[in-house]
Design a protein around this nucleic acid. Structure first.
Lengths: 223, 223
DNA sequence: GCCCATAATGGACGATCGTCCATTAATTAT
DNA sequence: ATAATTAATGGACGATCGTCCATTATGGGC
């Protein structure tokens, strides 16, 4: 026993985690996305992130310089993951333009990209983008890249409809398809349980066939 | 001069604002929506709201019971304003179903509903809805009501296409049109400057005409 | 003119926010 | 083996958060 009432200052032999900065960054980004999906971006705090990550408070400032930059990095990582999966599907479909578009639609509506976690994160970033430069950069990237992919494929398809084809048809169809995909994500977010991937796929194909009657027939894989 | 260094405790004859609780509620809701549009929902604090409203701190707790309920009330007010404008357009168009749908599309893309402030607020609420019951209630109201309006009109139009018409066509077209409208709002948010109301209108009509060839011909008011 | 119900005020409060940094420990270089 | 480098820690810090309430001002009913 000690004579004084003072508690013994036990140095507590701190076991630091293995040094692995790259891994720490990855863990922090994942924890950030998970927290946003679970609590919403408003309630995503530094404390919640580091607690989920199992790392110490200082890591965010050390590796990203601040919370805002971490959010931007998370937005970038999220966009990268989206395109990694999308590109995988597109690579299998090329070079036929209609097959590419079918693959894009199927991938965008697939479980890997369209799920509760992803759609919550997506819309949280969308809502925050107008007032956060760092987030906006990677929230708009998707549109640009995806739009180019769609537009290129549609232009190729459009040539098959001869010069009689309205030159604005391709642009209209590009914007419309993008809007349809976005709208389906919103529908999934709002209606969750009632949403059907196959039904959404069928609807989009119907709309596309309306503009390009010689293409986008019913998917044989779907009812 | 005063003998002591103590500043005189001037009672400062407080001029309270006129008593008008209903007006105070309205001012607070407007200030909330303006703050969300300007700073994003993450940075919308009680302090910012009351400062913009020119009212005192306690008003939020007094009139709404807390910040969360104020946000919910603001979401409801925003949805109400949307439908007030929409209903105004629909009333002029009834009872012809195609005219109603054209009015819905035109109203949804019009300056009164689709503008920078509105679209920022809309997406901020959308992003917050999954984790806020109060906001979700009035964020999904729009879908339900709008969907019913669209579905009813489309069903009426669909009958003109005889029994050969796929019974799922109406449902598909309803979901597709909703998705297109949502998607156009997202496009406006992301691409702001490049967005064209008339172009969006034309695109949606094209898509609808693809499903209902005897309807939704080019709007004579548009190029 | 007085009273009473209550709209309005603004500061106190503890909690939590994000940032920062002195310290500790793990790794690399010498 | 020792020094130098830097990843990792976790608490301190002031700022700001949202809530709450004692107090003050107001307007309608008597």
């Amino acid at each position: 026993m000690h004579a004084t009432g003072e508690p013994v200052q036990r140095p507590e032999p701190k076991r630091l985690a293995k040094r692995n900065p790259e891994n720490s960054r990855r863990i922090l980004i994942t924890a950030t996305l998970d927290t946003i999906a679970e609590s919403g971006i408003t309630d995503t705090s530094v404390s919640k992130i580091v607690e989920r990550a199992g790392l110490s408070r200082g890591m965010i400032h050390l590796h990203f310089g601040g919370k805002q930059q971490l959010l931007a990095a998370a937005a970038r990582a999220f966009a990268d993951a989206y395109y990694k999966e999308l590109d995988r599907h597109i690579a299998l479909a090329e070079p036929d333009p209609e097959t590419v578009l079918r693959a894009v639609i199927r991938a965008d509506l697939g479980k890997a990209l369209l799920n509760e976690r992803a759609v919550r994160i997506w819309h949280a970033f969308r809502g925050a983008a107008p007032t956060s430069e760092g987030i906006a950069r990677f929230s708009s990237t998707r549109d640009r890249r995806l739009r180019n992919i769609i537009e290129r494929s549609l232009r190729e398809i459009g040539t098959g409809y001869g010069p009689a084809c309205d030159p604005q048809l391709v642009q209209a169809a590009t914007l419309g398809l993008l809007a349809l995909l976005e709208g389906m994500w919103v529908d999934y977010l709002s209606n969750g349980r009632a949403f059907s991937r196959d039904a959404a796929n069928v609807i989009i194909l119907r709309f596309m066939k309306g503009l390009f009657p010689n293409h986008f027939g019913p998917d044989p894989q779907l009812s």
